[in-house]
Design a protein around this nucleic acid. Structure first.
Lengths: 338, 338
DNA sequence: ACTTTTTTTGAGAGCGCTCCCAAAAACGGC
DNA sequence: GCCGTTTTTGGGAGCGCTCTCAAAAAAAGT
C-alpha cells in the first residue's frame, strides 16, 4: 500500500514527476511507460493526497453552500432540501464536493465567516437566499471570493440565479382574478428578503393591471413558516377576503390550519393560491393550487454557474451573470371557482 | 495584507516559528513577544492557510456526512434535513465543517467512495441509514476510516447511534391495543434497512405480548415514501384492518390519501399510528398520533461521537460505542378510541 | 562573576504534490 | 552514422505550514 508518489515511482522504476504526469494525464509520457506506471499504481492501491495537491494548485474542488441564519429555521421547509439535492447532484457530476454551512443566529457570524471562507478550503461559494441586511454578501464581494447568490440580489457585481418570483406571483393573482375573485388578500414572505418583496410586487402589479384597488389591510407580512402563515391568516380573517395569495406553501399549510379552526371551508368560503409547489402541496386536503418553481434545477444551475465562473477567472471582471427561471401555475383544488 | 507566516514574522521582527507558536497558543513565548506578534497579525490581516496546515497535521477539521442512494429519494422527507441541521449545529460548536455527500444511484459508487473518502480531505465520516447490502460500511471498515453510523448496524466494530425503533414500534402498537383494536396491520419500512426491520419486530413483539396472532397478510412492506405508503394502504384495504401501524409519517400521509380516496374515515373507520413526528404530522388533518424520535439530537450526537472518537484515536481499538435514544408516543387525532 | 539550569527563539527538514527547466533518449534527414 | 530536432524523463524548488532540535538568552544557584 504505497502512499506517496515517490513510492509508486520507485515501484515503476521511474521518477516522481513521471508518475505525476501519468496521474494528471499529461500527454508527453511514452505509452509503455504510462502502462508500467498505471500497473504500479493499481498494484499499490495508491491514491493521490488531495491536500498536498491543493496546496500547490490552490484548488480544493470543494464549494461551499451557505444558508444564512434567517432561513435556517426554515429547514423543515422542503425548499432547502430540494435545493441541496440539486446542488449535490451537480457537484457529483463535476467531481466537486459540497461543504454545507448553516449560519445560525446564535453564533458570531464574523467568526463563522472567517472560519468557513478565509481558510482557503473553498474554491467558491453559493449563498442561498441572503437577506439584504446580512453582511455576508458585502463581505464576499470585499474579499473577492467567487460566489453565486440563489435569489436575486440587487447589486451590479453579484452573479445570481432566481425564479421569476414577480411573474409567478402575478400569475397566481391573475388566476384568482380570472376565477372572479375581487377582494384578494396576500400573506407575504419576509419583506427583508428579495423573494418576499418580489412576490408582493407581483401581487400589486396583477391587481393594478386589472384595476383592482390595493388595500393595505389585505396585505399581511409573513415569514415563510407554517406558524407565521397561521398567525397571518388569523389576522386576516376579520377583513374577510374572498381569496388569498399566500407567498409559500408552508405558510399556506398554516393558513389552512387557521381557517379550519375558524370553521372556514377552502375553497368554498375562501380561495387560496400559494407558491413553491413542494411535495406536501399536493398531499394535503384540499390540494394546493400553487406556483411551481424548479427548486432542484436552481440548485444544480447555481453550481454550474459557479464552476463556469471558476473556470475562466482569468478574464477576471466578467459582467455579472444572471439567470431567471420561469415558474408555472399548477391548478389543484384550493381555489375552486366561485 | 500579509499572506504567509514568514511575512508576518518579518513584520514582527521574529521568526516564522515564533509566529506559528503564537497562533497555536503554544505556552513558551514571552508575553511581550506574543503581544508584538499579535499586533503584526492584526495589522496585516493575516489568516493561516488551512490547507498547508492540514498537509502537516493531517487533520482538516472537516467531517463527511454520507447519505446513501437508497434514501436519497427520501430527501423530501424532513428526516434528513433535521438530521443535517443537528449535525451542522454540532459542527459549528466544535469548529468543524460538514461535507455533504449524497450517493445517488446513477453514479458509480466505488468511484464516489474513492473520491469522497480516500482523498484525505475528511477526518471522519457519518453514514446516515446505510442499508445492509450497501458496500459502503464494509469499505469504511476495511480502510479504517473513523465513522459513526446513524442507525443501528449489526457489526461488532461499528459505532452507531439510533433511536429505539423496536421499543417505539412496540409502544405504538400497544397504544392501539390499549384502545381496543384487535385486527392491527402494519405498513413497514424497507426491510433491507435495519430501522425497517426493527420497527416490524416491535410490531410483532407487541402483538405477541398481548397474545394477538400475527397475520402475515396484515404486513405490507413499504419504502418510507408517501407513494409507497399509498400503494401499501391500497393493498391493505381488502384485508380491512381496524388499525394500522405505519412505520413512517410520510407513508402515513400516503396511506391517508389512499383511505380518503376509498372513502374511509380516519379514525372512525380505521385508526392510524405512525413513526417519526416530523412537522407535517401535526399539520395535517387528522393530526397523526405518532412516535416521536429526536432526529436533530441524533444528528448532533453523531457528530460528537465521531469527534470524541477522533480525539482518542491513540487508544486505537476501543470497543464500539453505541447509543440508543428513547422515543416517545405523541397522541393526536388519528387513532381516536373505538 | 561564573556555572548550571531553564526559558525562549530560530533554523532546518519535511508533509506530498506540481511545475519548470535542463538532461537524456528517441527520431529524422542526409 | 552523425548532427539537429523533437519527445520523454528526472531533479530541484517551492506551496505554507508544523515540529524537532539545537542555539541563544534569561534566570537561578554557588
Amino acid at each position: 500500500m504505497a502512499s506517496t508518489l515517490e513510492e509508486v515511482a520507485q515501484l515503476a522504476g521511474v521518477s516522481r514527476s513521471t508518475v505525476s504526469r501519468v496521474i494528471n494525464d499529461h500527454p508527453s509520457v511514452r505509452p509503455e511507460t504510462r502502462e508500467r506506471v498505471w500497473q504500479a499504481i493499481r498494484q499499490s492501491g495508491y491514491q493521490p493526497h488531495a491536500v498536498a495537491r491543493s496546496l500547490v494548485t490552490s484548488r480544493t474542488q470543494i464549494i461551499g453552500m451557505i444558508i444564512p441564519e434567517t432561513v435556517t429555521t426554515l429547514f423543515t421547509d422542503p425548499f432547502f432540501p430540494l435545493l441541496l439535492r440539486g446542488a449535490t447532484e451537480a457537484c457529483n457530476a463535476h467531481h466537486y464536493q459540497l461543504l454545507l454551512s448553516l449560519f445560525n443566529d446564535s453564533a458570531d457570524r464574523e467568526e463563522m465567516y472567517q472560519r468557513v471562507l478565509r481558510r482557503g478550503y473553498l474554491d467558491g461559494v453559493i449563498v442561498a437566499s441572503a437577506s439584504l441586511n446580512d453582511p455576508l454578501v458585502p463581505a464576499l464581494l470585499r474579499d473577492r471570493i467567487p460566489f453565486i447568490s440563489i435569489g436575486r440580489y440587487p447589486h451590479e457585481k453579484v452573479h445570481y440565479i432566481d425564479v421569476d418570483n414577480l411573474g409567478g406571483a402575478q400569475m397566481a393573482v391573475e388566476h384568482l382574478i380570472r376565477l372572479g375573485y375581487q377582494r384578494i388578500a396576500t400573506i407575504t414572505g419576509p419583506l427583508d428578503m428579495v423573494s418576499g418583496q418580489d412576490r408582493l410586487e407581483g401581487y400589486r402589479q396583477a391587481l393594478k393591471a386589472h384595476r383592482i384597488p390595493v388595500e393595505e389591510e389585505l396585505i399581511i407580512e409573513g415569514d415563510y413558516t407554517e406558524n407565521g402563515g397561521m398567525a397571518a391568516m388569523q389576522r386576516l380573517l376579520s377583513a374577510s377576503p374572498e381569496a388569498v395569495f399566500v407567498a409559500s406553501d408552508m405558510m399556506a399549510l398554516g393558513a389552512l390550519k387557521a381557517l379550519r379552526q375558524a370553521g372556514w371551508q377552502v375553497p368554498q368560503d375562501i380561495a387560496l393560491v400559494s407558491f413553491d409547489d413542494v411535495p406536501i402541496a399536493s398531499a394535503i386536503e384540499p390540494a394546493l393550487t400553487t406556483i411551481r418553481q424548479p427548486i432542484e434545477r436552481m440548485g444544480a444551475m447555481a453550481v454550474e454557474m459557479l464552476l463556469s465562473r471558476l473556470e475562466d477567472s482569468g478574464g477576471e471582471e466578467a459582467p455579472a451573470h444572471r439567470i431567471i427561471l420561469p415558474t408555472e401555475l399548477v391548478i389543484r383544488a384550493s381555489c375552486g371557482s366561485p
